[in-house]
Amino acid sequence: MAGLNSIDIKPSITQDRENPFKRNWLITSAWLLLAAYLIYSVNAMGLSWERISSGLGYADKLLDKMFPPNFNRWELLLNDLAESLEIAIIASVAGIFLSLFFGLFAARNLMPNWVSIPMRGFIAICRTFHPVIIAILFVKSVGFGALAGILTLIVASIGFIAKLFAEAIEEISLKQVEAIRATGAGFVSVILFSVMPQVFSRFLGFSTYQLDSNLRNSTMVGIVGAGGLGGTLFSAFQRFDYDFVAAILITIIALIMLGEFLSNIVRRIFR
């Protein structure tokens, strides 16, 4: 349209044109609001130069104490590492298995509303709370130790995989479902032979991702007492054993990089 209109305008050099780069007052006011917010929140934070400079001094001391990392208590470290791994593996397998069903029940195109709506609500609740908060609740109800960590990560896995899996099922082509139904197949056969082949590869993708993220989270839930490396890390922090802290951090980073490497291999195999 703009091209057509421009034909009518007679070309003249002195014509007053509108500035093509007009100032957008909405955006300008948004930037101003952001700047005002920044000033307000930095003030609310109570930041001062003294605090920063003393903090930098402490950071220097902290780094000094952290290096060299202290691997003397490697038996404890290995034990906790094994526990973290166990938590991650059990929680992933159980969580992925459960989300297979929960995701199916939450898919709006296969299930009636009275099944899918409560299921979606349940999944949303699983997803809303940070794993640490869920871990606290489980630690209070089942006591300290690996069990609380496992239950926490199962809930976190359901919140993530079941949601994505339900979305994947809602995107499938219904033609194949109809074709299988037309042969007189029962509900289970319809799911197994028309729905699963369409979504299974995506489900595997979500699962490897979740295994990865469970591995990360299993090193953290220990901070509130749910087993694994996190507990040792937290107590090392509280006892100012910073060289041991450095050793634990290095172990965690190595574990996560190994996990990423392995899940890349698995993804390549199942491509």
């Binding site: 640490v132 990360r216 953290m220 901070i223 890390l233 980073i253 996560i256 990089m257």
Partner: peptide, 10 residues
């Protein structure tokens, strides 16, 4: 790789 809680501890 470092969790936000661990960053917070640091």
């Amino acid at each position: 790789s470092v969790n936000s809680l661990v960053w917070a501890l640091l």
